[in-house]
Amino acid sequence: MHLQPVFKNVPYYGGTVAEELFENGLCSPSGSNLTEDDKVRIATIVKKVFKQHI
């Protein structure tokens, strides 16, 4: 979280693992307010991206 602009002035204590995950990870929409249609749309897009890289 320390790499997000809102936290740019907050002290950070740690190594580089979080930075590597931030650079290489997937930040997907989440939350309790996602509708079933939202979830289907997100899953469809993720599956499409992975199929392109196989």
Score class of each variant (00 low, 15 high):
7 F>T: 09
26 L>W: 13
3 L>R: 12
14 G>I: 01
11 P>G: 01
5 P>G: 04
39 K>W: 06
42 I>G: 00
39 K>R: 12
9 N>E: 09
49 V>Q: 07
50 F>C: 13
42 I>W: 00
52 Q>E: 04
14 G>A: 06
9 N>M: 09
2 H>K: 07
13 Y>S: 09
43 A>P: 00
23 E>K: 13
4 Q>C: 14
33 N>L: 08
20 E>K: 12
44 T>N: 08
40 V>A: 11
18 A>C: 07
23 E>G: 09
19 E>V: 00
14 G>M: 05
40 V>W: 05
29 P>S: 10
4 Q>L: 15
2 H>P: 00
29 P>Y: 10
8 K>P: 01
34 L>Y: 08
34 L>F: 03
35 T>R: 03
31 G>C: 03
11 P>W: 00
49 V>R: 10
12 Y>T: 07
6 V>T: 02
17 V>A: 10
35 T>V: 03
8 K>L: 08
25 G>C: 03
35 T>P: 00
40 V>R: 13
1 M>V: 13
27 C>W: 14
1 M>P: 04
1 M>I: 11
3 L>D: 06
2 H>Y: 14
28 S>F: 09
43 A>K: 06
42 I>C: 00
27 C>R: 15
1 M>T: 15
17 V>M: 13
52 Q>F: 08
30 S>C: 10
45 I>R: 15
33 N>D: 03
34 L>D: 03
31 G>H: 03
15 G>Y: 01
17 V>P: 00
13 Y>V: 07
46 V>W: 13
4 Q>G: 14
23 E>P: 01
7 F>L: 15
26 L>E: 13
37 D>Y: 04
32 S>H: 13
